[in-house]
Simulated scan of single mutants.
Amino acid sequence: MRIRDLVEDLAITRVAGYPATRVMEPVSTRLYQLESPQNRAREDAARPGAPYRIVARSAHRCIPQVPCPQRYSTSDNSFI
């Protein structure tokens, strides 16, 4: 019974999540445009960076750091 509930919940989440995300993007953009310059400046000052940079930093912290091997460039026979 629990596996069936899990599969059902995953299906509902997928069906509901995609349209919600598609609707929220233009709504958020429009609300941001309507925001006063003072409020926008205050919000930007409180934010630690652009949203994509925040996500990239968070994801980078979750990935174990593995040293990169040297790569060999065939164009000029040197290591890059």
Score class of each variant (00 low, 15 high):
M1C: 08
R2C: 04
I3P: 01
I3H: 05
I3L: 14
R4G: 04
L6G: 02
V7M: 05
V7N: 00
E8V: 07
E8G: 10
D9I: 02
L10K: 11
A11P: 00
I12D: 07
T13L: 08
G17N: 06
Y18C: 07
P19G: 01
P19I: 02
T21V: 10
T21K: 13
T21C: 12
P26G: 05
V27A: 14
V27D: 04
V27M: 12
S28K: 08
S28P: 00
R30N: 10
Q33N: 11
Q33H: 10
L34V: 03
L34C: 10
S36K: 07
P37F: 00
Q38W: 03
R40M: 11
R40W: 06
E43H: 06
A45V: 00
A46L: 07
R47D: 01
P48E: 06
P48Y: 06
P48D: 06
G49T: 02
A50Q: 05
A50G: 03
P51R: 07
P51A: 03
P51H: 05
Y52I: 05
R53T: 08
R53Y: 01
R53M: 10
V55P: 00
V55M: 12
A56V: 00
R57K: 07
R57Y: 00
R57Q: 06
R57G: 03
S58H: 13
H60T: 08
H60V: 01
R61N: 09
C62W: 04
C62G: 07
Q65R: 13
Q70W: 13
Q70E: 13
R71G: 07
Y72H: 15
Y72G: 05
T74Y: 04
T74P: 00
S75M: 11
D76W: 13
D76L: 14
D76N: 15
D76C: 13
N77V: 01
N77R: 15
S78T: 12
I80R: 12
